[in-house]
Amino acid sequence: MVQGAALQLSDLSVNFGAIPALLGLNADLAVGSLTAVVGPNGAGKSTLLKTVVGEVQPFRGRVSFGALKRSEVAYLPQHSTIERDFPISVQEIVTMGLWNELGPFGAPDRRQRTEVEEAIEAVGMAGLESRMIGQLSGGQLQRALFARLLLQKGKLILLDEPFNAVDTKTLIDLIRVIKEWHSDGITILAVLHDQETVRAHFPQTLLIARELVAHGPTRQVLTGANTQLASRMCEACADELHSCSKVNT
């Protein structure tokens, strides 16, 4: 066990009905590490994040956060359940990130309102504060959600495919936000499918195919041999179970 791990997965196993989605996963993420989760479709990448935040219960093994509190874990799911038609502005949706400070009853004070403004500015959305979320493009909404994430001030940030359906300009801006988190010593775990992005920006990689394939420095993990092994492992269980699509999370 690594001293000062921000996230420890020990023998983590998750089933969906009779179908295994994750099997005996062991991994320790060091405090302040920037890690990409990579794997073929149906490898259990999203399931891993959902299990870490407690949305899915493991049937065996456990997740622990080292010295972190549960409230210091922030999570951005792949498919946000945000109701896009709801008449609410960018500023209001970003302010929701202050929930841990405000609770259900508090109102943001002057300092917190400034924080909201700064977060909106940091994701390049200055000037769009009063825009309704229904009028945002996919990239703009993702920027707003990153601003909300900024305000949550998590010590461990989990991102599920954060660059899906996002334009190149947004991708660059959001990667800059992630790098700022990284330089502030925040631990980040992001599910990504684009290996170019992973190689360019993520020092650590966790390659999974339901089971752990490899974990370590990206250059050593993302080798041709490893990724082929991962897709073979996933295909093998897909053939066996005829149901990879069901666990395609």
Binding site: V53, E55, S71, Y75, P77, S80, T81, I82, E83, F86, I88, I93, M96, W99, N100, L102, P104, F105, R148
Partner: peptide
């Protein structure tokens, strides 16, 4: 009293669930 709670539960229930059991 519950305006923010109901508002957040209406706009983004998953996000609220990740923060609180309320």
């Amino acid at each position: 009293l519950m305006f923010r709670l109901i508002l957040m539960e209406s706009v983004d229930p998953q996000f609220l669930a990740s923060l609180s059991r309320l």
